[in-house]
Structures are given as structure tokens and as C-alpha cells.
Amino acid sequence: MEIKVVRKVLDVNDTMAQQNRSRFADEKVFVLNVMSSPGSGKTTTLVKTISRLLPEIKCAVIVGDICSTIDADRLSVTGVQVVQVNTDEFGGDCHLAAHVIGNAANSIDLEAVDLLIVENVGNLVCPAEFDIGEDARVVVLSVTEGEDKPLKYPLMFRVCDAALLNKTDLLPYLEYDKNDAVKNILQIHPDMSVFEISAKTEEGFEPWIMWLKERVKKKLA
């Protein structure tokens, strides 16, 4: 005998994500989910981004790693509230789930925050599947990772609103075809915003900061 079930496997996560979303709407907090492979320069990019947003836009960060507090320590130099989540308590999860974000947000004074940045676990696969209640998703891709990455991880590039092509200061030393990389990103997601940046030198940051500010202000208005 067949019994119909018809439920999404990630129902529980999706429900939690919706709860997060309405809570962040009530609190007027814009939530940015930042994803990438390990070592793409997420943390440095965020430190530099936050420094440019302050004091106009008040920020806080939830940072996810399987273990260690290295990223939280690096981010705390900006002076903003930082909560480190270590997923080894949850079985070494490869992504941040919605309930983890909900719990982490409890230890942040959301009233004093305009922009909550979630630095997801370094991984181009799993975080793409999990809604956390965010307003926008950004993927960081560094020029040392190869031009083909968007083609190999299409879901990540489909679900994100913008891509930051990072470490462009290294281009003179690499046999990297930047145009090919951008072409591959747009082949997966034709209306994606692509920003070429160097987190080290901060070259190319202005358009990215404008893109982000515009979205945050729209939600706060």
C-alpha cells in the first residue's frame, strides 16, 4: 500500500528560514549571506567592506566554520558584534542551517544593527541549498580558483545575486582568463552582478559597496 507524503525534505529548515525572515523584517535588519570555497578571501573582503560601511551602516557578523574562532578574531578588529558558530557541535555540518542563524541572532543586539552579514562555511556546494532567511546572497570567487568554477558549481551561481571576483591584484602573476571567468558566471546566471575586486588593495570596491548600500537602505527605508 502506498501512502502519499508529499513534503519537502528541507521543510523544517525552510520554515525556520521564514521565521528568521519575518523577524529580520520586523527588526529592520538586512541579512547578507556570503558564500565561497575555502580560502577565497571572504573574511578579508568582509573586514574591508565593513570598514567602508561604518559608521553609516551599522553591521554585525555571524561567522560559520567547522571549528576555530580565527575568523571571528579577524572580524572583531572592525569593532562590530561578531558571533562565531562552530558546526562541529552539529556534526561538522558543511553549511549554516536556518535554526543555527536563528540561535546566533539571539546573542546579537539587532536593534543596533542595519546589516547582518553571515559568513557561511567555506563550501561551494551545500550552503547553496539552505535558505537562512537572508535578503541577498553573494558568492566570492578568487582568481586563483580557476575560470571553470561557475560551470562546476552551477547551483551556487544560480542562487546568488552577486559575485565578487576577488584577488585581482594577483592577475599579473597568473595564467588566468578573467573574461572567460566572467563569461562562465554569466552563462550560469545572466543577470548576475559581477564585481572585480582585490580585498588586499581594495581596488574595485566602490561599485560593490554601492550595490550593497543601495539594497540595505531600501530595506531600512
Binding site: E2, V5, V6, K8
Partner: peptide
């Protein structure tokens, strides 16, 4: 999709 459609039980 990542959906559970049904379960089938033995008669």
C-alpha cells in the same frame, strides 16, 4: 526538488 513523495508498506 528534494521531496518525499510517498512511503510503501507491505500488505
Amino acid at each position: 526538488e528534494l521531496d518525499i513523495v510517498s512511503i510503501e508498506i507491505a500488505d
